[in-house]
């Protein structure tokens, strides 16, 4: 049993989208701009040329926040959305009836409709692919050129992620909603 989370050194991100492609190839996510488990959020730059605000131009890699209090899990009428023993929020495609309540409930817009199965899909921390084979990194972490992500067990005090979080300041997204995300953005 583990309690999986992810730390993101997001200032490293250069918006190359290697993670998006790696995720799709690893997990069989359909092509199409509206079909993705992970993405890089880009903010349009502020200012007028040549006086542009460099600070306003940011790249924020994002995905399912793997909330401890996941609103998507609460609203699911068929219990398709559930927690694994390792604390990963997953969708059981056999139970999903595509009511899309979960998509409405997710404050992070992290879910999409997988059209070949007509069910809701989202980031699984590669639980059913890489982790199942005993690998210890997710596809997005492994491929990243600037090594934004560190995935690991939050309950293991010796894991790299625990050490990082103990030593580096970090924040979570939309903390005020009380969802207790397990994605930590390092400051």
């Amino acid at each position: 049993m583990a309690n999986y989370g992810m730390a993101l050194d997001y200032k490293n991100c250069i918006n190359c989208k290697a993670c998006e492609v790696a995720c799709k190839e690893e997990n069989g996510v359909q092509l199409g701009a509206d079909k993705h488990r992970i993405w890089v959020g880009v903010k349009e730059i502020e200012g007028l040329w040549p006086n542009l605000s460099i600070a306003s131009s940011t790249f924020e890699p994002s995905q399912c926040q793997q909330c401890e209090n996941a609103p998507c899990q609460e609203v699911c009428p068929t219990k398709a959305t559930h927690y694994t023993k390792d604390g990963v929020v997953m969708v059981d495609a056999d139970k999903c009836i595509l009511c899309s309540y979960c998509m409405e409930a997710c404050p992070y817009d992290a879910r999409y409709v997988k059209e070949d199965t007509m069910t809701v899909d989202k980031c699984t921390f590669c639980s059913d692919t890489r982790l199942l084979r005993g690998e210890t990194t997710t596809a997005c972490q492994a491929t990243c050129p600037t090594k934004v992500r560190t995935f690991g067990d939050l309950d293991d005090p010796n894991s790299e992620i625990s050490i990082l979080l103990a030593h580096r300041e970090h924040r979570t997204l939309k903390t005020h909603l009380g969802t207790k995300p397990k994605l930590f953005y390092l400051i």
């Binding site: 190359c16 989208k17 290697a18 998006e20 492609v21 790696a22 190839e25 690893e26 596809a139 492994a142 491929t143 990243c144 050129p145 090594k147």
Partner: peptide
């Protein structure tokens, strides 16, 4: 060929593949 992963042994590319490498 179902997946291309970075090779951690090469000092030049140091365990990474870019989006094109993945694709």
């Amino acid at each position: 060929v179902v997946k291309l992963d970075p090779n951690p042994y090469f000092p030049k590319s140091r365990n990474m593949l870019c989006p094109r490498g993945n694709a």
